[in-house]
């Protein structure tokens, strides 16, 4: 019961932050809301007993990526961004599509026979490490290639011409 209350309150906060990220006008506030949303995801991970993921989520997303994002926001023209509307003329159709999808997923989830699992509150780091360098080594290495390619792209696009 207590877990459920915690879960629903975290989810509510997560959704609230996520909606704010895309609707508030100031880019800086939306970055801060993003921090909130990402922290809530970390909280969900904790709730599910995924300690390593929760720590990585905080360290990488909230600590690393978000700080970079805030830097980028501060270096760009924030004032100008406030003049633009957050939605374009197609927001009604897209809202309808989203609601439709939401409804479909809701129906699907209502009918599904997922059973309640037991959350093991044990350290997962060791298991993850063994998996990443054992059975999952190929995906792990491919991910590093992907990240390298994206890094090359980032450097290429940000250098002076």
């Amino acid at each position: 019961m207590v877990t459920e209350i915690i879960f629903y309150s975290i989810s509510f906060l997560l959704l609230l932050c996520a909606i704010q990220v895309v609707t508030v006008r100031s880019v800086f506030s939306s970055a801060l809301y993003l921090a909130g949303a990402l922290s809530m995801v970390a909280a969900l991970f904790v709730l599910l007993g995924a300690d390593f993921l929760a720590a990585v989520q905080i360290l990488l997303y909230v600590g690393g990526i978000l700080v970079l994002l805030v830097f980028a926001v501060m270096l760009s023209s924030v004032q100008q961004a406030k003049l633009y509307a957050q939605v374009n003329e197609q927001w009604v159709p897209s809202l309808i599509v989203c609601l439709g999808l939401f409804l479909l997923i809701g129906i699907g989830l209502k009918r599904v026979s997922f059973v309640e699992g037991t959350v093991l509150h044990a350290p997962t780091t060791k298991g993850l490490g063994t998996l990443l360098l054992g059975g999952m080594i190929l995906p792990f290495e491919v991910v590093s290639l992907i990240l390298l390619a994206s890094l090359v792209g980032a450097i290429l696009f940000s250098r002076k011409t």
């Binding site: 190929l138 995906p139 491919v142 991910v143 290639l145 992907i146 390619a149 994206s150 090359v152 792209g153 290429l156 696009f157």
Partner: peptide, 16 residues
């Protein structure tokens, strides 16, 4: 998993 990773490795260089 490989489908997803292969797809990313194919398309991310293409974006660039």
């Amino acid at each position: 998993l490989m489908l997803f990773l292969g797809m990313e490795l194919t398309t991310i260089p293409l974006f660039i």
